[in-house]
C-alpha cells in the first residue's frame, strides 16, 4: 500500500499541478461565494478526475500488468485508489475550511465556516457515488470506465443541485439555529449513511471485478 501511495503522490506532484491550480482557483471562488454547492461539486469533480486519471495512467503504462508480477495483491491495488480518493477528498475539505477561515479573518464574516460540515457531508455523499465510477473503471478499463464517470458525475451534479439550497441556508445562518432538528439535516445524514454503504459496496465490487480481470 505504501509503495502505491508513494507512486501516486509522486505522479500527482509531477503531473497534476494543473488539477491543483484549478482546484485552488475554485476554492478561492468558493471561498468568496461561500455556500455555493456547485463550487464544491466542481472541486470534487476535479479531485475524482485526478484519481481516475491515475487509474487510466496506470493502465496506459501497463503498470497493472507489471505490478501483478510483484507482491502487490489486486485487493491492495484497488484499496489504494480508494484510500487515495478519500485522502484527496479530505485534502480538499481542509483547503476549503482554511480558505473559509481566511475569508472570515479578512472580511470579518465567519458564517461561511458553518458550511464546512454541510460540505463535508456533501463530499461524503459524492465519495459514495463517485466510487462506483472507480469500480467500473477497474471492471471495464479506463476507456469504457469513463462512461461510468460521466453517469455518476451527472448523478452527483443532480445531488449537488438538490442540496444546494440546504448548503446555502446553512451558509447564510438561516438553518444554523435549528439545523439539528431540520428535516434537511436528517435527509443529508441519511444520504451520508447510504453513501457510506455505497462506498463499501463499490469497494467490494471493485475488488471482485478487478480480481477476475485478465491482465493480458
Amino acid at each position: 500500500m505504501k509503495a502505491l501511495l508513494y507512486k501516486d503522490f509522486c505522479l500527482l506532484k509531477k503531473m497534476y499541478l494543473f488539477y491543483g491550480v484549478l482546484i485552488g482557483i475554485i476554492t478561492v471562488v468558493g471561498g468568496v461565494y461561500y455556500g455555493n454547492s456547485s463550487m464544491f461539486f466542481f472541486q470534487l469533480l476535479l479531485t475524482l478526475s485526478s484519481v481516475l486519471s491515475l487509474i487510466a495512467l496506470d493502465d496506459k503504462n501497463r503498470w497493472f500488468q507489471y505490478s501483478d508480477s510483484m507482491p502487490i495483491g489486486r485487493k491492495t491495488t484497488v484499496t489504494e485508489k480508494y484510500v487515495m480518493m478519500i485522502i484527496l477528498f479530505l485534502g480538499v475539505a481542509v483547503i476549503d475550511f482554511l480558505s473559509l477561515l481566511i475569508h472570515g479573518i479578512i472580511f470579518g464574516d465567519y458564517s461561511g465556516l458553518s458550511t464546512v460540515w454541510g460540505a463535508l457531508l456533501l463530499f461524503w455523499i459524492f465519495c459514495g457515488l463517485f466510487s462506483w465510477s472507480m469500480a467500473f473503471m477497474f471492471k471495464l478499463g479506463p476507456e469504457k470506465g469513463r462512461i461510468a464517470f460521466m453517469i455518476f458525475g451527472g448523478v452527483c451534479g443532480a445531488v449537488a443541485a438538490i442540496f444546494a439550497g440546504f448548503i446555502k441556508d446553512v451558509g447564510s445562518g438561516n438553518a444554523a439555529a435549528n439545523a439539528n432538528s431540520s428535516k434537511a439535516l436528517i435527509a443529508v445524514l441519511a444520504a451520508a449513511a447510504i453513501s457510506t454503504g455505497l462506498l463499501v459496496l463499490s469497494w467490494f465490487a471493485a475488488v471482485r471485478w478487478y480480481g477476475k480481470r485478465e491482465l493480458g
Binding site: 509503495a3 509522486c10 500488468q65 510483484m70
Partner: peptide, 26 residues
Amino acid sequence: VVPDEVGLPGYLTVKQIGKLMSLTYK
C-alpha cells in the same frame, strides 16, 4: 520478473523507482 514491456510510470525517475521497489519488496 522482466516482462516484454516494463510497465513503470514515465514521470518517475530511476531513483524514485528504486524507492518504490524498496517499499514493495521486503
